[in-house]
Design a protein around this nucleic acid. Structure first.
Lengths: 104, 104
DNA sequence: TATAAACGCAACCATTTGGTTGCGCAAATT
DNA sequence: AATTTGCGCAACCAAATGGTTGCGTTTATA
């Protein structure tokens, strides 16, 4: 079990890992099932899953020799919380744009 | 002017760049003004700004020898759009948790 | 005109990343 | 019991990253 801390933002920085998270948002999956969706070695996918696990973006459920990976929605929420800083900006800035366009 | 494409998720993967974006959400700033907030060389901060520019997370406004960096809220919205996949999950999963706790 | 300030380019370096292949162990299947 | 399956560990490699220092060009100031 790896206990190294990993940043959730670093975890989602890679497109492969984002795709993994998107798949897990739909259903619980095993490493081999996930690997079938990518054109890279099973080990490469396993490495990405490892990064997601370190960031606590996924939760593991061991069933014999199989591991079922679940999305950890709570962890994903940290991204949403950071985004709060900008949310009011695009609302406001789009409002400003509308204002400018109205004057043309 | 760099035109290399850069992923917005890769841009925010680094804590220094997230801090830069948070500062720019508050006010327009120049590279030197931004550099004052960090314990690293001015050039290191400039490099980070370069990554953000490549990802179109910031917009540049040249004023003589100074560059004023603005947040590009529209680009930040891409992160929010990807997050939509998970938003209903934590609402739903928290709801399930409430359901379980209610039975205790 | 001389000097200072703003700030990116380039080279360098250590570390990290993202992929591959080979291997080994435990669980499941035959 | 033998074989297969699931899947992580380790080593390797090329590329990318994140920091530093030195330098040069353009703009602003004295």
């Amino acid at each position: 079990m790896n206990t190294a801390k990993r940043d959730i933002f670093q975890a989602v920085a890679d497109p492969t890992r984002r795709a993994i998270l998107t798949l897990l948002a739909l259903q619980v999956m095993t490493p081999n099932a996930l690997a079938e969706h990518f054109n890279m070695s099973r080990q490469a996918v396993s490495k990405h899953i490892g990064v997601l696990a370190q960031a606590h973006a996924v939760k593991l459920e061991y069933r014999g020799r199989e591991i079922h990976y679940h999305i950890n929605a709570k962890k994903m929420q940290e991204i949403d919380q950071w985004m709060a800083t900008f949310r009011n900006l695009w609302d406001d800035k789009f409002g400003q744009l509308d204002e400018v366009l109205k004057d043309i």
